[in-house]
């Protein structure tokens, strides 16, 4: 099987259109069609239904599409690592980090790491925890930072310590402590359910007999920055990680509100695929094990 044929098929299904796939791959439409036909021949299966509303995968095509994503990710990462290897820079490192780590704790760590290990190219992307786990398991990403912990037969996990979230309000909010019942009166701006922190919030509230569904949720957002602006403007309350609100606490645009001693505790960890050995990856893991906590703020 030719991997470029698989890519042509993958892009076609992704865009549901041969012409869009052709445009992205800088190829002509007939070429894409031929590549897909060759792939169908190799795999001995019909993969695409061609209709006048566009192209759709058959059940077999759907299956191939799922695998193609992983195969192409792994393949592309292998090619890039290989390029690095040939150019004598063995230090390419790919990181997938959950948003809070990626935005607030990682930049410093990376700076210090790059200062100590020269010639390193680090690629960072921000994803939610389940995607980070997927990227490390299947996508050939070297390092993942997640909320909580994850272990299986291929993945190792290094805990990075305990962190806290707090109820927050705007800086000039007057009631610095609230009773549980009063929470129901105010609007809430809550981290989106795709984010693993949301689960921790829900579980902690439930342990204190508060059902999150009873809160007046004004907005759910995956962006902590937008939640912060809404809360700072005095529109309501939120529950946010301390590392994300330090600046606002200092400048007094946000303040912490105590609610009957409720504490939101959670942890971060670093995960990696222990079956794949790469020097830059091992260097980074050693660096985090030895100094990580000092650079995590």
């Amino acid at each position: 099987m030719n991997i470029e044929n698989l890519r042509a098929f993958y892009k076609t299904v992704y865009y549901k259109s041969i012409s869009s796939a052709a445009r992205e791959l800088y190829l002509s439409q007939p070429t894409i069609s031929q590549q897909i036909k060759a792939l169908e021949k190799d795999l001995k299966a019909t993969l695409l239904k061609r209709t006048n509303r566009g192209v759709f995968p058959t059940p077999a095509g759907e299956l191939v599409y799922q695998y193609a994503e992983r195969i192409l990710n792994l393949y592309d990462n292998m090619v890039k690592d290989l390029e690095c290897c040939e150019n004598n820079c063995i230090n390419r490192l790919t990181i997938s980090a959950c948003p809070t780590i990626g935005q607030y704790a990682l930049p410093c760590t990376l700076h210090e790491f790059k200062r100590r290990y020269k010639n390193i190219t680090v690629h960072v992307e921000h994803n939610f925890t389940p995607e980070v786990i997927y990227n490390v398991k299947e996508g050939g990403i070297d390092i993942g930072f997640i909320e909580g912990c994850y272990v299986d037969e291929n993945i190792s996990c290094i805990p990075l310590g305990d962190f806290k979230m707090h109820f927050v309000a705007s800086g000039n909010w007057e009631e610095k402590s609230l009773s549980k019942n009063k929470l129901l009166r105010y609007n809430f701006f809550i981290i989106h359910r795709k984010c693993a922190l949301r689960k921790i919030i829900e579980e902690t509230l439930l342990a204190h007999e508060i059902d999150i569904k009873k809160l007046k949720i004004e907005m759910e957002s995956p962006s902590i920055e937008s939640i912060k602006s809404s809360v700072a403007a005095g529109h309501g309350l939120s529950i946010l990680p301390y590392i994300a609100i330090k600046k606002e606490l200092y400048t007094k645009t946000l303040s912490i509100v105590e609610v009957e001693g409720i504490e939101f505790n959670y942890s971060y960890s670093l995960i990696y695929n222990k079956k794949i050995y790469k020097k830059s990856k091992m260097d980074f893991i050693d660096f985090i094990k030895n100094n990580g906590k000092d650079f995590f703020c």
Partner: peptide, 8 residues
């Protein structure tokens, strides 16, 4: 100088 990172 106000800083919020230990390495800074």
């Amino acid at each position: 100088v106000v800083v919020d990172h230990r390495c800074t």
